[in-house]
Design a protein around this nucleic acid. Structure first.
Lengths: 238, 238
DNA sequence: TTTGTAAATATGTTCTACATAACTAATTAT
DNA sequence: ATAATTAGTTATGTAGAACATATTTACAAA
C-alpha cells in the first residue's frame, strides 16, 4: 500500500456526458412535478428542445429510465411514468462472474443475516399449509442423491422466504440465488449443520421464534464457522 | 369485471425494442467471453455491424450498461469493462416518492429482518473502539431534543451496520435510509421500545449474541407490533 | 351501432456529418 | 541523439434529417 490512498482522496474524474446530465434532469423533473404512475410525459422532441440537446441524447437518457422500469413508452401515445421495479435494476448487475470476490463474500454474509432475522416474520405469518409444504420438501430430500441436494436446499429456503409474506424479500432472495450457488459450488464439500431441514420444520411447528433462530443458526453453523475462520487470516485484499 | 379475466390469461405484449435485445446480447457476450475488468471492448461501429443494427441502437444499449457501471468509455481508447457497482443501480430507483406503498412496507420489514440478523456478525467483528463510539452516540442522545432523535437513531443503527464489517450491507442500509425516514415520519409519534440504545451497548459489552438479539427485538418491538396489527386487518390491496 | 378506412402523430431506427479528446508518429529544435 | 512540438489518426460524443411503424382519432360506409 502506498503512503496515501490516492484513489480514496482524489475522486475519479468522471467525464460527464450529456446523457448523464439529461438523465439526472429528467429524474429531478419527474420528482419535482410529482408525476404519478400513468401520467404522460412530454414528447421526446419537446424534451430535446427544452433541454437544448439533440433527440439522440434525450433518447439515451430515456432508454436508461426505461430499462429501470421508471417509464414505459408506446408508439404514438408517448411515454408514461411507470411504477419502477426496484429489484429489476438490481438483477441486471448481479452476475457472480463479474462481481469481485469481496462483494461476493459480503452478499453471502447478507444471506446469513437474512435467514437468521427471518424468524420473526415467519412466526407472524406461517400457516398450516405452509408447514405442510415445508414438510413435503424436507421429506423428499432424504432419499435424493447428493447431486440434487443443492436443488432441495434452494427449494426449502426459498419456501421460507415465501412464508415471510414479503414479496420484495422473496424476489431479493431469488435474485441472489445464483450467487449463493456460486459460493457453495466453490466450496470443497457441501456443508450442512447438525440441524436438518426436517428439524427446522419440527421447530416451526412446536417451538417458538427463539428456538427456530437457534436451529437456523445451527443449521447454517458451518458457514458461520467459515466466516470466523477467514476473519483471523484476513489480509488486505486489493 | 368481464366474464373472462383477459388481462390475466392474455399476457401483455411487451414491445421489445432493438436496444433491449442489444443490451441483452452485449451482456451475454461479456459473460461468455469472460471479460475481466479493464479489458477493452470492441468499438461501437464494430458492434453495430456485427449485430446488424445502427450505431444509435448500440449506443443506447451501451448507455444503459454505462449507467450501471458495467463499462467505462473514453474518447479514443474505446470502452473497457469496469467492475460494476452493484448498489449503484439500486440507488437510482430508490425514491420513496415513487415506490408504491406495499413495496415500501416490504422494505421496512427488510430493515427489521436485517437488524435482528445482524447480531451474529456484530459479535464476530466488534472491537473495543466500536463499543466506545456506540456508547458516545447513545450518551449524546439522552440530552438532545426530540427533533434530533431521528438523526441519532440513524447514527446509532448506522454504526451497527458499520461494525458488521460488511461494506455492501452498510451501503445497502445507507441507501435505504431515506425510506426508513419516510416511513417513520408517516407515523404519528416516534416509537421506541423499552430497550434503549444505551441498553443495547451494555448488552454488546457484557452479553452474548442471543441477549443482544433479544434486546434488539425489544427495541424494535413497537414496529413489529404494528406489523402484527396490520396483519389482521389486512385486505386485498390493488 | 358497428365496422372499415384514411390521416395524423410519436416513437423506433437508420444514416450522415462533425466535434472532441487522446493516442501515434513524424518533424523540428536543442 | 534526445527532447519537444506538431500534425494526423481514431473512437466516442453530439447533432440533425429522414423514414418506418404502430396506434390513436376521425370520418365514412354498412
Amino acid at each position: 500500500m502506498s503512503k496515501y490512498d490516492l484513489s480514496q482522496d482524489l475522486k475519479r474524474i468522471t467525464s460527464t456526458t450529456m446523457a448523464d446530465i439529461v438523465e439526472l434532469r429528467l429524474r429531478e423533473y419527474l420528482k419535482k412535478k410529482s408525476f404519478k404512475p400513468g401520467d404522460p410525459l412530454p414528447k421526446e422532441l419537446e424534451l430535446a428542445e427544452a433541454l437544448g440537446v439533440s433527440r439522440n441524447v434525450v433518447r439515451e437518457a430515456l432508454s436508461r429510465l426505461r430499462m429501470l422500469g421508471m417509464i414505459e413508452s408506446k408508439k404514438k401515445r408517448g411515454m408514461i411514468l411507470a411504477r419502477p421495479d426496484i429489484l429489476g435494476a438490481f438483477e441486471r448487475v448481479l452476475d457472480p462472474l463479474i462481481i469481485d470476490k469481496d462483494t461476493l463474500q459480503d452478499i453471502f454474509e447478507l444471506r446469513l443475516v437474512l435467514e437468521i432475522g427471518l424468524a420473526d416474520l415467519l412466526y407472524i405469518r406461517k400457516t398450516d399449509k405452509d408447514i405442510e409444504e415445508l414438510e413435503h420438501i424436507a421429506k423428499n430430500e432424504v432419499r435424493t442423491e447428493s447431486s440434487f441436494r443443492i436443488k432441495n436446499e434452494i427449494a426449502f429456503h426459498g419456501k421460507l422466504y415465501e412464508i415471510s409474506g414479503n414479496d420484495t424479500l422473496k424476489r431479493f432472495q431469488n435474485m441472489l440465488l445464483p450467487i449463493f450457488g456460486y459460493v457453495v459450488a466453490s466450496e470443497k464439500e457441501f456443508r450442512s449443520g447438525k440441524v436438518t431441514h426436517s428439524d427446522l420444520v419440527e421447530i416451526l411447528k412446536k417451538g417458538n421464534k427463539e428456538d427456530f433462530r437457534q436451529g437456523m443458526l445451527e443449521h447454517l453453523k458451518p458457514h458461520f464457522d467459515k466466516l470466523e475462520k477467514t476473519e483471523t487470516t484476513d489480509t488486505l485484499t486489493d
